[in-house]
Design a protein around this nucleic acid. Structure first.
Length: 486
DNA sequence: TTTTGAGTTGTTCGA
DNA sequence: GTCGAACAACTCAAA
C-alpha cells in the first residue's frame, strides 16, 4: 500500500499553508502528510535565532498550529539537530520522503546538501521547492551570465524576466498523518523571554501569523501606499507596510505580495509610482538573497576586500551607549529605543543609526549586524548583512564613503515636528522643535524651561559631528591608497 | 575588447 | 532661505 506511506513536510522559514508549493504537492499526492517544525539551535552556529525573532517565532508557530487545526491536521514540533530529528521521524513513521521550502542562508544550504546526500544513499526522497523568493538566485543574471552587483540593473532585468508564478492555495481535502508519539509543546520550546519579559506588550503591536500578514498587506495597499514614495521616509507617519517580520518568517508569500501589488496598480493607476517603489523594496530583498547565495561570506566578511584593512575603532563602552540609545543625538537614541521597545525600527532611522555606528563611532559594522540580529523581529540574514555593508560602504552597490549622515539634519528633515523623537526620548519632550535635534545648542533658559540638564537628564553628544565626520573621511581615505596599490 | 553611461536613501560650501 | 556643484574616483553592465 504505497499510497499509505506518509510524506514529511519540514517547516523552517516559510510558516504558512498558503502558496507553499512543497506542501501543496505533498497534499496532492493523496498520501498522508506529516507537517513538522524543528527548532534547530545546533546547526546555525552564530546565526541561531536571536531573542526578538524567538518571540515572533513562538507567536507565528501558534498561529500556524491554529491554521492546521482549521485544516483538520496537526503541526508537530520538535527540537534538536534537524538531520537527526528527521531521520528519527522517518524511522518512526515509515515515511520515505521529506519535502521542504528551499533555504538560501549558507548554513541552511549546507544542511540541505548534507541531508540530501545522506537521504539519497538510503533511498529516501528529499524534495526542495521554491517558496521564499520571487526570483530564484541564479535566474536573473547579466548578459555575461554573472550575478548582478548593482541593484538598478538587477531589478530592471528581474522585472523583464518571466513573471513569478501566481500563488496557489492548498486543497481543503488533505490527508494528514496521525502522529501519536511524543513531541514537545510550544511552551516547551521555551522561545519566550522570561525575567524580564521585555516583550510583554509586543502582542499589542504585532499580529504574527499569516492572517496578520494578509491584513497588513491589504491595509497597506488600501491606505498607506497612496503616499508611500514620500511618506516612507518619515518615521512618525506610519506610511510603511510593516511586512518585514511577516516576510522574514514566510507567513506571507512574496508571490502574493507581487500579485496584489500589481493588481492595485491596475485598479488605481495613480498609485502606480508608489506601488513600483514598494515593489522595488521587495526587490532589495531579492537582490540581497542573490548576493548572499553567490557571495556566502557576506554576513561575516566585507564584500569589497579592501575593507579588510579598514581601521575600525570602537570601544565596548561606546557600542553600549549606542545600543542603549544614549548617544546624545536624539534621532539616533529614538531609533535605538524604538528597537529595544518594539523589536522594530523605521527604515529611515535604521540608516541613520547604522551610519552613526559605523562612521561616527568607527565601529565595525558586524557589531551593529549582531545587535540587529538579536533585537529585530524581522532579522533576516541576507537583508541584515547586505544592508549593514551597504551603509558601511563595504557592500555591493554601497553608499559612497563620503556619504556620512548628519544626525541633526536627518532629524530636522524627516522628523521636523519631532513626533517620533519625542515619543521615544520623552525626557526631551518639552524642548521646542528648533532645538529638539540639537539640545546642546539650546540656551540655558530654554533647557531649564524644558526641565533638561545635559549630562544628567539626557546625555551630552558622545562625539562632535564635524570632528567625527572628518575622522571617518580620513579612515576611508586610508584604505583607498590600498586600493591603488592592489 | 573597448568604450560609455550610470550608479537607493547625503552633506557641505559658496553664490 | 535656496540652489547647484563638488565630493572622488571606481566598478559595473551593456553596447
Amino acid at each position: 500500500m504505497t499510497d499509505q506511506i506518509p510524506i514529511i513536510y519540514w517547516y523552517r522559514q516559510d510558516l504558512r499553508t498558503h502558496d507553499l508549493p512543497g506542501l501543496l504537492q505533498a497534499a496532492q499526492s493523496g498520501r498522508p502528510v506529516l507537517p513538522v517544525f524543528i527548532l534547530d539551535d545546533d546547526t546555525p552556529g552564530q546565526w541561531r535565532l536571536g531573542g526578538a525573532s524567538r518571540w515572533w517565532l513562538h507567536q507565528s508557530l501558534a498561529a500556524l498550529m491554529h491554521e492546521f487545526e482549521g485544516l483538520g491536521g496537526k503541526l508537530i514540533l520538535k527540537c534538536g539537530n534537524a538531520q537527526k530529528v528527521l531521520q528519527q521521524l522517518l524511522d518512526e513513521t515509515g515515511a520515505d520522503s521529506i519535502y521542504c521550502s528551499r533555504s538560501y542562508t549558507p548554513w541552511a544550504v549546507q544542511q540541505e546538501e548534507t541531508l540530501h546526500a545522506s537521504l539519497s544513499k538510503s533511498g529516501m526522497r528529499f524534495k526542495r521547492f521554491a517558496g521564499s523568493l520571487l526570483f530564484e538566485p541564479g535566474s536573473v543574471l547579466t548578459q555575461a551570465g554573472q550575478p548582478f552587483k548593482v541593484f538598478t540593473p538587477f531589478w530592471r532585468a528581474a522585472r523583464n524576466a518571466p513573471t513569478p508564478p501566481p500563488p496557489r492555495s492548498l486543497d481543503t481535502s488533505c490527508c494528514w498523518y496521525n502522529y501519536s508519539d511524543e513531541a514537545p509543546t510550544l511552551e516547551e520550546l521555551a522561545l519566550l523571554p522570561r525575567q524580564p519579559d521585555w516583550a510583554e506588550r509586543w502582542g499589542d503591536i504585532w499580529t504574527p501569523g499569516s492572517a496578520g500578514a494578509e491584513r497588513a498587506l491589504d491595509d497597506f495597499l488600501a491606505q498607506q501606499v497612496i503616499n508611500y514614495s514620500e511618506g516612507r521616509d518619515h518615521p512618525a507617519m506610519n506610511a510603511t507596510s510593516h511586512l518585514s517580520p511577516h516576510l522574514a518568517f514566510g507567513e506571507i508569500s512574496p508571490r502574493v505580495i507581487w500579485q496584489r501589488a500589481l493588481h492595485c496598480s491596475e485598479a488605481y493607476p495613480e498609485r502606480r509610482q508608489h506601488v513600483d517603489k514598494f515593489l522595488s523594496e521587495v526587490g532589495w530583498r531579492e537582490f540581497s538573497y542573490q548576493l548572499l547565495v553567490h557571495f556566502p561570506h557576506i554576513p561575516e566578511r566585507p564584500f569589497k576586500p579592501q575593507f579588510e584593512a579598514f581601521p575600525w575603532l570602537g570601544s565596548q563602552q561606546s557600542l553600549q551607549r549606542w545600543q542603549r540609545g544614549e548617544t546624545g543625538y536624539p534621532i539616533v537614541d529614538a531609533g535605538m529605543r524604538e528597537l529595544w521597545a518594539t523589536g522594530y525600527m523605521h527604515n529611515r532611522v535604521r540608516m541613520v543609526v547604522a551610519s552613526f555606528l559605523s562612521k561616527h563611532l568607527l565601529t565595525h559594522w558586524r557589531e551593529g549586524e549582531n545587535w540587529f540580529w538579536d533585537t529585530l523581529v524581522d532579522a533576516d540574514l541576507a537583508n541584515n548583512a547586505c544592508s549593514w555593508q551597504w551603509v558601511a560602504g563595504s557592500g555591493a552597490d554601497a553608499s559612497p564613503y563620503f556619504r556620512i549622515f548628519n544626525p541633526v539634519a536627518q532629524g530636522e528633515k524627516f522628523d521636523r515636528e519631532g513626533v517620533y523623537t519625542r515619543r521615544w526620548v520623552p525626557e526631551l519632550s518639552q524642548l521646542p522643535d528648533k532645538y529638539l535635534h540639537k539640545p546642546w545648542e539650546a540656551p540655558a533658559e530654554v533647557m531649564d524651561a524644558a526641565g533638561i540638564c545635559l549630562g544628567e537628564t539626557y546625555p551630552a553628544p558622545m562625539v562632535d559631528h564635524k570632528a567625527a565626520r572628518e575622522a571617518a573621511l580620513a579612515a576611508y581615505a586610508s584604505i583607498k591608497t590600498n586600493v591603488g596599490r592592489v
